[in-house]
Design a protein around this nucleic acid. Structure first.
Lengths: 147, 147
DNA sequence: ATGATCTTGACCAAGTTAGTCGTGAATTAG
DNA sequence: CTAATTCACGACTAACTTGGTCAAGATCAT
């Protein structure tokens, strides 16, 4: 359940696309510069996001990346699970298709509640929400510089 | 915020002390056997728990480990923070004594809420609660074997 | 003293994280 | 057609974390 640079950078990249991707593809280099992400690393994150259908890329001059769906329809939960893998705080909570019961650890029930609550909250946040917050943050930062 | 073997084993060791520690110290080897924990590893966990005042140890024959306080007064949150370090899901949420503002990441506010909720839930669970659950679990396991 | 028991620190293998780099493939401009 | 632009993908790496093991020593009851 730890969010590292993958989750942080990856989400920021998507927010960037939500904010600046209105008029066609946005280039990797541009995202990297704006979001202060090493470009060669961003590569991997975009590849993952493309594999999971969040972005579409086009090559060649004028190419770049864009969201496949409107930002209102992309939720933070799915993005983070794509980038970071399972967010389960302990192995015994990992989503398990095998049907076998995982070993029960003493604290499981508390963590189950925490995990469910967490996923619900993350599912309720869309890229559009995040982009709106980011716009607001940028506005107030610029304002404080100009005083 | 990931709970590894440290947190799992360590909590189980404390539950063991809560359950079997009524009549004097419990030995490392005994805990290790009952809870299926490598004894030499349990060592380190008990050392940490002693440093943070959860258990007291006595050496020599008849020695062992015991809780310093009644299990009702020990909460899961503090135990896990002792064993695993900060449970913050992202670095920017780490409790910060320096007063400097951490870099703001876009998702911070959601995670702040999740983190606070998590800590509240963990703080509401005592070792006594966990021990009660464990007793119940053992009872039902034995019952299912005897059928 | 002796043996039981905890204490401490050094050490280690395997896995994860956070990248870098190089080569190649697609697309477009000229 | 060719060159320039941009993404695609896999190999490689250094540093750190995890989950331990092990040996030497400190204490204490008897």
């Amino acid at each position: 359940m730890h969010i590292g640079t993958k989750g942080d950078y990856g989400v920021r990249a998507l927010i960037d696309l939500a904010m600046y991707g209105g008029e066609g593809p946005v280039q990797r280099a541009e995202i990297a510069r704006r979001q202060h992400i090493p470009e060669s690393y961003l590569d991997h994150l975009l590849a993952q996001l493309r594999r999971d259908g969040f972005v579409r890329s086009t090559r060649g001059p004028g190419g770049g990346h864009q969201l496949t769906r409107p930002p209102e329809e992309i939720c933070l939960l799915h993005v983070l699970e794509s980038l970071e893998g399972s967010l389960a705080p302990m192995p015994c909570l990992e989503d398990d298709d095998s049907g076998e019961p995982h070993s029960v650890c003493a604290q499981q029930w508390v963590w189950r509640e925490i995990y469910d609550d967490m996923r619900a909250r993350l599912a309720a946040v869309s890229l559009a929400d995040l982009a709106a917050r980011e716009r607001e943050r940028l506005r107030s930062t610029v304002a404080s510089y100009s005083i």
